[in-house]
């Protein structure tokens, strides 16, 4: 099984997303809930964004959630600013953070 690895920071791609608010699409792993996240502050840690999105999707609050960039497959590092890891218009998948054996 392929290990989930943190997404690398791409400095060249960051300048644009750091300037203004971030917009992206988020869905849960089943595809049941799709949310257009708007005006997300780029400096917000990705882990906090995942928690808030899970709440908006009415997903269980007692589960830690993580986000995966849909186009690269990379997991966002929860303590790093989301603006350092996503570009505007990106799509992310919200998954429960679980160790599978």
């Amino acid at each position: 099984m392929k290990a989930l690895t943190p997404s690398p920071v791409k400095p060249a791609a960051l300048a644009g997303s750091r300037r203004g608010m971030l917009h992206f699409e988020a869905r849960d792993v089943t595809g049941t809930h799709v949310i257009e996240a708007r005006n997300v502050q780029p400096a917000t840690p990705a882990g906090a964004v995942a928690t808030a999105l899970a709440s908006r999707m009415a997903l269980p609050p007692n589960v830690p959630w993580m986000m995966r960039n849909d186009s690269t497959g990379a997991v966002l590092e929860e303590e790093k600013p989301i603006g350092d890891q996503l570009q505007a218009g990106a799509k992310v998948v919200l998954s429960p953070k679980a160790h599978l054996g």
Binding site: M21, N39, Q41, T44, P45, A48, A52, L53, S55, R56
Partner: peptide, 28 residues
């Protein structure tokens, strides 16, 4: 970082030679 259910805001500490402040957007 303030998370309250689906509500999320990121604050900032401003430290400039002539300013020292805490600031949170309430509507970004």
């Amino acid at each position: 970082t303030v998370v309250n259910g689906g509500f999320l805001r990121q604050g900032d500490v401003i430290t400039e030679p002539t300013q020292f402040a805490l600031r949170f957007p309430i509507v970004p």
